[in-house]
């Protein structure tokens, strides 16, 4: 178990600076690699520290969730609708704020980053949604390139990396299509390409196969596994029992906002 004092040590390192100089903190964290490694083994790459989230007084979406995720892990978060899977993912990208607790990514406190600097955090997290969330008036290529442009990457890098990532998701021939010209599975692969292109630390996939047929579902899952094998953390939220059981990796089961089971090579239990 995590010794509480180590978490406090980390907080004292991250909190005072982070209010004003989030960007510099991010850089500093990278530079202070040794320091990060020092905390790294204890808290992991991603650390949900006693997180609770209440939307109103009666219901709690999450209750005292503590989760540690190590580099290169593939973790499935399962549970019935309303168990808190999506809330957990939303907290990591700060779409929602936790009512209690802190979240750390790679040694800095995500929950302390100022709203104005959130994009620095989000560039390190690739997000995939059930409804793809592609920009409808941009081509597949432009959708992926947008993530790089937004991150301030150079044009040459963009010209080089975007085709590569399309090759990875197997859509080289559809780069110039608009989202409405693509099938659901193809759109989701574009979304994955976009999530990947900035080489994030983590890929968040919230029910990525929810709108897809079985064939496309397996292709997306295989793609996520491949990405994970290349070294990126994948957090998959799903209630597809078959998919979870086949992946055969760590499974965290949420029920009414609480972690009821956390197993390496787990199965969908509910």
């Amino acid at each position: 178990m995590l010794p509480t004092n180590s978490s406090e040590k980390l907080v004292s390192f991250a909190t005072p600076i982070s209010y004003k100089f989030e960007c510099s903190v991010l850089n500093a964290v990278v530079k202070l690699y040794s320091l990060r490694l020092h905390n790294f083994d204890i808290i992991g790459m991603i650390f949900f520290d006693n997180i609770s989230k209440q939307y109103n007084h009666h219901t709690a979406a999450l209750r005292n969730v503590t989760l540690r995720i190590q580099p290169k892990e593939f973790i499935s978060v399962v549970g019935s609708s309303g168990a808190g899977k999506t809330t957990l993912l939303k907290l990591l990208i700060r779409e929602e704020e936790p009512s209690e607790g802190k979240i750390f990514l790679d040694g800095f406190e995500v929950t302390a980053v100022h709203r104005r600097d959130l994009h620095h955090v989000r560039r390190r997290i690739g997000t995939i949604f059930q409804d793809y969330k592609l920009l409808p008036d941009r081509t597949a290529y432009e959708n992926v390139a947008f993530a790089m442009e937004a991150a301030g990457r150079r044009d040459e890098e963009i010209h080089e990396d975007v085709p590569q990532v399309f090759e990875l998701v197997g859509l080289t021939d559809r780069m110039e299509s608009f989202p409405h010209q693509l099938s659901g599975g193809e759109q989701q692969r574009v979304a994955i390409a976009r999530a990947l292109v900035n080489r994030p630390d983590v890929i968040l996939a919230d029910e990525p196969t929810g709108n897809l047929d079985p064939v496309n579902t397996w292709e997306i899952i295989k793609l996520l596994q491949k990405i994970n094998e290349l070294g990126t953390i994948v957090i998959l939220a799903s209630h597809n029992k078959e998919v979870i059981n086949t992946i055969d990796k760590r499974v965290v089961v949420l029920d009414r906002g609480m972690v009821v089971s956390d197993q390496e090579r787990g199965k969908y239990l509910l």
Partner: peptide, 16 residues
């Protein structure tokens, strides 16, 4: 408005 939200999630700064 949805596009604006998507851009935010992809990591675009507000002024971008």
């Amino acid at each position: 408005r949805e596009e604006v939200g998507i851009m935010r999630f992809v990591g675009a700064a507000a002024w971008f």
